[in-house]
C-alpha cells in the first residue's frame, strides 16, 4: 500500500472493518437461526451499520448507553465482545447475561451498556433516569459522562418519547436521543405514523436541538455525534439526532425483506446506491484485494466467536433462581 496515496488513517480503516463486523455478525445470526441453532427471534441491523459505528465509537467506555431490540451493532461498538454476544444469543452461561436475556436484552455494564429493550420506546425513560443520576445532587462536579439512548422511528409515536424529551430538556440532562429512522415501524411506513417529514423536528417543541442526517454517511454520523456528545458533556443539554437509514432484512425473522410492505426495487436501491459500507469503501479508496482481505479477517473473527458460543454450557435450571432477586 502506498502511504502517500492513502485517503484514510487507521481509525477510519477500523471503522470500515467494524461495519463489516456488524454486518457479518447479523448475517451469521440469520444463518444460525435457519440451521435451528439459534432460538427465539431476530431483529437484525443489517444496512444500519454506520449509525452504530458512527455514534457508539464516539463514546467513552464510562459513558452510558441504552439500546433497543435492534441493538447488536450498538452494543458491539460500545465495546462488547462478539464471542460473549453470540454466547448470549445462543443462551449460554458465558453470554453477557448468562443466557437469560437473549438477543433483545444484551447488557454489558463493564462497557456502560445498561440494557437493551424489547418494548418499543421503553429505553428512553430509563435513559433519562440514568442521565439524571449523572447530574444528581452535585455529581456533575465529579464527572462529565453522557448517556445515549437508541430507538427507532416507530418509537417516535409513543408517549414516552415526548414525556422524556420534555423532562430531559427541562432538567438539562447530558443525554442524546438517537432515532434510527429506517422508514418502517414493523410494516407501517413512517409517513403513515405521523404528519412530519423529519422526526428530529419534534425536538423544537421541547426546546431541544434536533438534527436530521443521512445515517448511512459514516463520516457525517461521526461528526454530528461527536458534536452533540461534546455539547452534552459540557453541560449544553440533550439533543435529538435522527439518522435516516434502512434495514435490509425484515423487521424480524418473521417477515421477508420485501414483498409485503416494501418492494424489491426499493430494497435493491438502498443496497446498491445507499449502502454505508460501499459508500465508505469509496471514501477510503480501498482496492478489491484489500476489501477481500478485510472480509476474510472478519469471517475469522465471527467463526471464532461462534465456536466459543457453541462450546459453552448453558446455566443449570437450579441456578436460574438466584437471578430473580438481587
Amino acid at each position: 500500500m502506498c502511504a502517500a496515496n492513502k485517503k484514510y488513517d487507521e481509525k477510519m480503516l477500523k471503522d470500515y472493518k467494524d461495519m463489516w463486523l456488524i454486518r457479518k455478525f447479523e448475517d451469521k445470526i440469520y444463518q444460525l437461526y435457519s440451521e435451528g441453532v439459534l432460538p427465539g427471534t431476530i431483529h437484525a441491523s443489517t444496512g444500519q451499520e454506520a449509525v452504530a459505528v458512527g455514534i457508539c465509537k464516539q463514546l467513552r467506555k464510562d459513558d452510558l448507553m441504552f439500546t433497543n431490540h435492534r441493538g447488536h451493532g450498538h452494543t458491539l461498538m460500545k465495546g462488547a465482545e462478539a464471542k460473549r454476544m453470540f454466547a448470549e444469543l445462543l443462551g449460554k452461561e458465558t453470554g453477557y447475561c448468562k443466557g437469560l436475556g437473549g438477543s433483545m436484552h444484551v447488557a454489558d455494564t463493564e462497557n456502560g451498556v445498561l440494557g437493551a429493550n424489547g418494548v418499543v420506546g421503553s429505553g428512553m425513560p430509563l435513559a433519562v433516569g440514568a442521565a439524571l443520576s449523572l447530574v444528581y445532587n452535585g455529581r456533575r462536579e465529579d464527572n462529565d459522562k453522557v448517556c445515549v439512548v437508541f430507538f427507532g422511528d416507530g418509537a417516535s409515536g409513543a408517549g414516552v418519547f415526548h414525556e422524556c424529551m420534555n423532562m430531559a430538556s427541562n432538567w438539562n440532562l447530558p443525554l442524546i436521543f438517537v432515532c434510527e429512522n429506517n422508514l418502517y415501524g414493523m410494516s407501517t411506513p413512517i409517513k403513515e405514523q405521523g404528519s412530519i417529514e423529519n422526526i428530529a423536528d419534534r425536538a423544537a417543541g421541547y426546546n431541544m436541538e434536533g438534527v436530521t442526517i443521512d445515517g448511512n454517511d459514516l463520516e457525517l454520523v461521526k461528526e454530528t455525534a461527536a458534536r452533540l456528545i461534546q455539547k452534552a458533556r459540557e453541560g449544553g443539554g440533550p439533543s435529538l439526532l435522527e439518522c435516516k437509514t434502512y434495514r435490509y432484512n425484515g423487521h424480524s425473522r418473521g417477515d421477508k425483506p420485501y414483498g409485503i410492505y416494501r418492494t424489491k426495487e426499493e430494497v435493491d436501491y438502498w443496497k446498491t446506491e445507499k449502502d454505508p459500507i460501499l459508500r465508505y469503501e469509496k471514501v477510503l479508496g480501498l482496492s478489491d484485494e484489500e476489501i477481500k482481505e478485510i472480509k476474510k479477517e472478519t469471517d475469522a473473527i465471527i467463526d471464532e466467536a461462534v465456536k466459543f458460543a457453541m462450546e459453552s454450557d448453558a446455566l443449570s435450571p437450579e441456578d436460574v433462581l438466584q437471578y430473580v432477586f438481587a
Binding site: L64, F66, L114, G115, S122, M124, P125, L126, A127, V128, G129, A130, A131, L132, S133, L134, Y136, G159, V160, E163, C164, N166, M167
Partner: peptide, 15 residues
C-alpha cells in the same frame, strides 16, 4: 407523566 417517571426512577436505580 407517570409512565416515564416510573422509568426515570428505575433508570436512576440501575445506575
Amino acid at each position: 407523566a407517570e409512565l416515564s417517571v416510573a422509568g426515570v426512577a428505575t433508570g436512576a436505580a440501575l445506575n
